[in-house]
Amino acid sequence: MAKLVYNELLKMFRKKRFLVVVLILAVLIPIFTYAQYITVQNTVKQIGTSDWKAILQQQIVDRENQLTSSRVPDEWKKWTRLTIAQEKYYLKNNINPTAPGAPTFVRKFVEEAVALFLPLIVVILAADLVSSEYANGTIKVLLTRPVPRWKVLLSKYLALILSISLMMLITGLLSYLLSGIIFGYKGWDLPVLTGFIQQGNQLITSQVHLVPQWKYIILSFGLAWFSALAVGTISFMVSVLVRNTATSMGVMLAAVISGSLLSQLAPTWQSLRYFVFINLRLTDYLAGKPVLISGMSLPFSLAMLSIWSIIAIIIAFVVFSKRDVLN
């Protein structure tokens, strides 16, 4: 089995699929970094002073005043206290929160990339994994070896899982290394707020707490990896079904992009949450961003992604091992 997986990885590398992915990342990450840098510059300009310590000090005083007010609900008070703790940490450790360093960029980048950018890259990796063998005709050589068909397909799937994992790692490393040139490489210990729970239309903050940024980044990447695997698995099934690389890529791009568009266009259409590509933004649950379609939560989305993936993998294996090779 290891030999078969090696074969598949070899083909993937020699087809320069990985090179394409790394190049895309190497071009886009500096652009995102620059965009972030411009935003930071604008903030400084608006405030009118570059002495961020003074600004932060003022913010903390403001918040402490809010806490003494009786009109503020208790939930808000807890949030405010945590925010104060966060800001005090910045002051004490001499961290400018508006220009916070490469780890923060990595965290924000993966939060933004999880819904569209990472899925597109996964599609590049997965879409022609099986269909290209049909297009080349090499499937006929591959399936006339003394190896059962399910093993051939499994080796391809394992190679896909490995390459998606490697791709996530490269994304993390590149975004850290490249953004650090501008933002500096510090900030792993920065406290980040998490533990939000969405219930109905309310954001419940009772579980909210601070975690060091490195922990938060590991969690985000884990969730983004899970999303990417689901996209990869479904893409893999499409690749088995269509036998043509262009069609396979087209179908997947359309599906991923419509998932991303629909969630913004039709948030009141509740059944949409059962569509797999609506559920890709797993990191939003971590960050406490408002959920667009009600009824969605981290366990719900994880379940949706898992169910769709399992169905896809079953279809892929059944079709691949039964189908006559006619082309």
Partner: peptide, 12 residues
């Protein structure tokens, strides 16, 4: 066997 054309990976 060779079924139809000799199909191999052109990039290897």
């Amino acid at each position: 066997c060779i079924v139809e054309n000799p199909e191999l990976y052109p990039y290897l």
